[in-house]
């Protein structure tokens, strides 16, 4: 039960690991991604991405600006211009 989550900025690969769930602030509303999500592409609002490594654990937070998310069979990839 894991989802490959990659957070990429122009300068480097910030994160690439298997996590449980990721909640992304999409432009059309916040959405959560678990393993086996349908392929889906959206732009991301400037805001906070929350990453749960384990169910019920405390989420890790990444502030992103200029983001874009892509869910494919591989997993979730977020491209962000700035990660703070």
């Amino acid at each position: 039960m894991s989802l490959l989550f990659e957070l990429v900025t122009p300068a480097r690969l910030v994160l690439s690991e298997n996590v449980y769930q990721v909640v992304v602030p999409g432009t059309e509303g916040e959405f959560g991604v678990l393993e086996g999500h349908a392929p889906f592409t959206t732009t991301v609002k400037d805001g906070v991405i929350r990453v749960w490594r384990t169910p019920g654990g405390a989420p890790e937070e990444f502030t992103v600006k200029g983001g874009f998310a892509e869910v494919s069979a591989r997993g979730l990839t977020v491209l962000a211009e700035h990660v703070g």
Binding site: P10, E28, P39, F40, T41, T42, T43, G66, F68, E81
Partner: peptide, 30 residues
């Protein structure tokens, strides 16, 4: 074309593309 999977776009292709093109340009320059 990677796979034949139907990908959903939100809001829609054009809007996302319009959003991504300046980023693509920035990245080309970078």
């Amino acid at each position: 074309v990677t796979d034949g999977a139907v990908v959903e776009y939100e809001p829609d292709e054009e809007t996302i593309l319009a959003e991504l093109l300046p980023r693509y340009l920035r990245n080309q320059i970078f």
